[in-house]
Design a protein around this nucleic acid. Structure first.
Lengths: 189, 189
DNA sequence: CGTCTATTTGAATGTACTCAAAAGCGGTGG
DNA sequence: CCACCGCTTTTGAGTACATTCAAATAGACG
C-alpha cells in the first residue's frame, strides 16, 4: 500500500490514516499508458483528475491552424487535468499525451466531490495544491509578459531540470510560445 | 453586518452562521485607501490577503529597467495579494496600488491560518477560490503563448468589461505585455 | 539500414520595440 | 470657468525580435 508515491505526495500537506488510504485505493482508478497514448482528447468530456505515479505527460492545445501550444508538462508526483473542463464539467480544450510509459492514478469528478464530503481534510490538501498551482501559473504569466525568450528559456531549464530531461526542444518551444527555429537560434545565442 | 459584499462572496461557495460572520468581522481589518495609495510595496513583507469591498486595485511589478508589468487588476468582489509572498511569507515582488478610493478588507496571514483551523469550511472556500484563480491564470498563460496581441486585447475587454472601465490603455498594455505605442497601433487596426 | 522527425541554418517578411514629437485629455489653481 | 500642466494616447521612422518557408543536417527508432 505504501508503495504509492501519491501517499507521500498527499502527506506533504495532510496526514492519512490507514483506513483512509484503504478508502482511496478503492476509490481511484489506475491506468497504464504507453508513449504517445492519449489520456484525454481535446473536445471530449474531462472527467478525471490525474496524478502521475510514474512516467510523464504533456498537456497541449491544437488550434485550427494546426499550431500546438503546450499548457504544461507533468512528471512523477504532479497532478494534471484540463482544470477548467474538469472543475466546470465542460469539454476539454487540451489533449493529454504520455511522453513515455506511465502509471497514472485517476480521480473521477464525482468521486472527488464525495471525497471532499467524506474526508474534508482533502479540501485542505487541494486548497494548498491549487494555491501553489496558481502561484506557479501567475509566475508564468509574469514571465511571458516581462521577460525575453532567452530569459524564459533559462527560467524553465533552471526551474524544471527533471522535465527538461524528458522532452524535446520543439516541446519547450511550444511551451514558451515561440517557434522551434527561433528557440534554436536563441540557444546558439 | 450583511451590508458587507464579502459575505455574499463567501456564501457563493459555503454557508455562514451569524456567529461565524461575527467572528469574521472581529478578525479582519478594514482599510480605506485613496487613489494612488499603496496597499503593498514591492520588496516588503506581505502579510495580508485583501478583498476589495469597493473600489479597485492594480498589482504590478517594477523591474530594474523601470518597466512596469501589471500582474492583475482587482475590482469590487475580487481577492488579491502577492500570493507567493503571502503564502510562503517571502518579500513581495509586486506593489498593489489603489486605482481610486477603495475599501479593502484585510486577512492577516496568521489570522487566516487560524481561521482554517477554527472554521474548516474555509479550506473549501479557498480551495474553490484558488482553483478558479488557477484556471484563470492558466488561460492567461495560454493566451500569451497562443494568441496575437489583437486577440489577447479582445479577450481582455470581452472578459473583463467592468475592469476596462476603470483603467487606462497604458495599464492594459502593461497587462498584455506590450508597449502602449504598440497597443495604440493595434487598436487602430 | 532506411525512414521519420527534430534540429539547425539562412533569407525574406512581419511583428513589436525604441525614440521622438504631436495631439488629446483630465485635474488643478487662478 | 478657463488656462495651464502633466500624463496618456497617437503617429511615424528606424531598429530589433520573431515568424515563415525552404533546405541541409543530425538523431531516434524500428
Amino acid at each position: 500500500m505504501n508503495q504509492y508515491h501519491i501517499f507521500k505526495n498527499i502527506q506533504k500537506h495532510i496526514s492519512l490514516t490507514e483506513s483512509e488510504k484503504e478508502y482511496l485505493i478503492n476509490s481511484w482508478d489506475i491506468k497504464e499508458v504507453g508513449k504517445k497514448d492519449l489520456l484525454l482528447r481535446q473536445g471530449h468530456a474531462c472527467r478525471k483528475l490525474c496524478f502521475v505515479e510514474s512516467g510523464s505527460l504533456r498537456t497541449f492545445n491544437l488550434n485550427e491552424d494546426g499550431k500546438e501550444s503546450t499548457i504544461m508538462f507533468a512528471i512523477q508526483d504532479w497532478w494534471v487535468t484540463d482544470m477548467n473542463g474538469f472543475a466546470n464539467q465542460k469539454p476539454a480544450v487540451v489533449s493529454i499525451e504520455a511522453l513515455e510509459k506511465s502509471t497514472i492514478i485517476e480521480f473521477d469528478f464525482l468521486m472527488l466531490e464525495s471525497l471532499y464530503v467524506k474526508i474534508p481534510k482533502f479540501e485542505r490538501f487541494f486548497r494548498i495544491l491549487f494555491q501553489n498551482a496558481y502561484i506557479r501559473e501567475q509566475q508564468r504569466s509574469f514571465n511571458n509578459i516581462a521577460l525575453t525568450t532567452e530569459q524564459r528559456y533559462s527560467y524553465f531549464i533552471d526551474k524544471y531540470p527533471a522535465i527538461v530531461e524528458k522532452i524535446t526542444q520543439k516541446q519547450i518551444a511550444s511551451y514558451l510560445g515561440v517557434t522551434p527555429e527561433f528557440l534554436s537560434s536563441v540557444k546558439k545565442k
